[in-house]
Write a protein that binds this DNA or RNA. Structure first.
Lengths: 308, 308
DNA sequence: ACTGATATGCTCACCATGAGCATAAGGAGG
DNA sequence: CCTCCTTATGCTCATGGTGAGCATATCAGT
């Protein structure tokens, strides 16, 4: 059982949030700090906070001015060597928060600035074929002894090589592999080609951001979380763009419509948006009742295509 | 960012494991303690453990003698009022571990002893219709003001009432709801009807067990985790029984076979097991390569039937 | 009116899934 | 040996979901 002991002296518990919004068809996160961007974080205050989540909300409000809505725990990190000094041990609980972009004392940044290889919407990222895959192949080739198959398998699964499909949800595994082979790094060591390697973040915050992206992508398929990122009324096109922004790929428009309409996720309001350029689009709203009807309501896994 | 401060004094970090095996078609977990069963736990030792997971493995080995294989982080709990005394704050990181049952200095217990309403294999648990649903209806009826619809919706979703289907993965939500309405309780207050309410566990360990069950049930569908619970060679029947034990329901045998065979999850070895009673069953092995071929290899969500 | 957009409806082939029938191959008992 | 019971395994069929693509509707501009 859990016996208290002096060993725990020097342990601190931090709470860190990846606050996600989608604006102008781009996934955005709140960052703090002028030079190296970091995620909004707070140290658990035993006296003030009854629960971890309350502590997080308080901390994010204090450092960004944002009042969080949907919040979900991601992961707890506690490896040696984290945190500001080497004397104490920092255990951080990372959270994913969904909201709509609002003025903040932090800075909203494009998530794909930090993870550029994750966005397939306009085209397959060139850095994948030009740089990452060759480096992975070298890493596989340089494997000691019988470890080569394991390395080959891992890179295949994670980066969709040799017959495996690109799995959008494996964003964390991709980051971890790139980190292990030394191609991306943490804690703001400026690399000369930040554009292709992605910008760095403070501490291990970029890893957390990658995990948030992967979790969110996965959850999109079976829980109606997208609507946290949308206004109360939206066009199906808008909904699709938000999903695509997070997914990092394009989907078949008609099938996407069928999915969300026939799946009962949305219902028309009768009002129209005429500002979209062509035929006016009907404004829809989220049908909350859907969670009663279907076991796993979400936008499914609509077939991804690199084309529009 | 994360500023160290004296607020964190008094915080302890604990690691807790739900160690799951399946023996004789029953899901089993390791418990510690003579009276009220608890989960194996350890306090993070800053000096000894480089990572949280190492700490957990060390702690479980120390308290049960078990050497864990597959380990996955579940959730981090940190509410006020946890832990042994009210002076300090205990933040616990809960883990799910999968293994095969082996001699242990802890005690292997049937998981459904603690969560009896979760097992639909022989029949729908009587306690659901006899006790739980009436209590839920009373709780809905007793709702203040306009809160009634929300309560009705929640109980419908979580317990599969009024058209909603029983979702095996919502084990945690069911426990949480039962806890909120006071029908199950924590920390070993002996209830007179433990057989139907389920046996209690120390602290909030029963909640953690419920979460482990839900997570495991979910993961079964899209990751080949069952095989952590099976020997290297097994019959399809054995595989099916293990899945059913965790799922808490029966599946259609032929369709299950089709799923795992045509899905490439297993391959025959040519050897047979003649001890099963009828026609000898071929022994199969897990095909590791499947993770390369399919994005989400698992035993899917084979249709559940209450009948055999 | 014609063009270019976007919105929306509909069809069709294909595959995964739920359900059930039928056959194969052991053992136990007469 | 024959019959029955049990488990294993093969196959069919209807249904619904999914990927793709064609066709039509309705706006803004020119």
């Amino acid at each position: 059982m859990s016996e208290p002991s002096d060993q725990s002296i020097g342990v601190q518990v931090g709470l860190t949030a990846v606050v996600v919004a989608v604006t102008d068809e781009r996934p955005r996160i709140v960052t703090i700090g002028a030079e190296t961007p970091g995620l909004p974080s707070v140290t658990l205050d035993v006296a003030l906070d009854r629960t971890l989540e309350r502590s997080l909300r308080r901390g994010v409000a204090a450092s960004t001015g944002l009042d969080l809505g949907y919040v979900e725990q991601l992961y707890t990190l506690g490896d040696l060597g984290r945190g500001p000094d080497s004397n104490s041990r920092l255990v951080s609980v990372a959270y994913l928060a969904l909201t709509r972009e609002a003025p903040s004392s932090g800075t909203w940044r494009d998530l794909y600035d930090f993870l550029p290889w994750e966005d397939f919407r306009t085209r397959r990222p060139a850095v994948l074929d030009d740089v990452i895959i060759p480096i992975l192949e070298a890493w596989v080739g340089a494997a000691p002894d019988g470890e080569q198959p394991a390395r080959r398998e891992r890179s295949s699964i994670v980066f969709g090589l040799g017959g495996s499909a690109w799995d959008v949800e494996r964003a964390l595994e991709r980051y971890e592999l790139l980190f292990e082979i030394g191609w991306v790094s943490e804690a703001g060591s400026l690399s000369p080609d930040a554009r292709s390697r992605g910008e760095e973040m403070a501490f291990d915050h970029r890893r957390i951001a990658a995990q948030a992206l992967g979790r969110l992508r996965g959850k999109l398929g079976y829980r109606p979380v997208v609507f946290e990122l949308l206004p109360a009324r939206f066009t199906l096109r808008h909904l699709q763009r938000v999903v695509e922004a997070l997914w990092g790929g394009r989907v078949h428009t008609q099938n996407f419509r069928r999915l969300v309409e026939r799946g009962g996720l949305v219902e028309g309001t009768g009002a129209f948006d005429t500002t979209t350029g062509g035929r006016p689009a009907e404004l829809y709203r989220f049908r909350r009742e859907v969670v009663l009807e279907r076991p796993a309501p979400g936008v499914g896994n609509p077939g991804m295509s690199t084309a529009g």
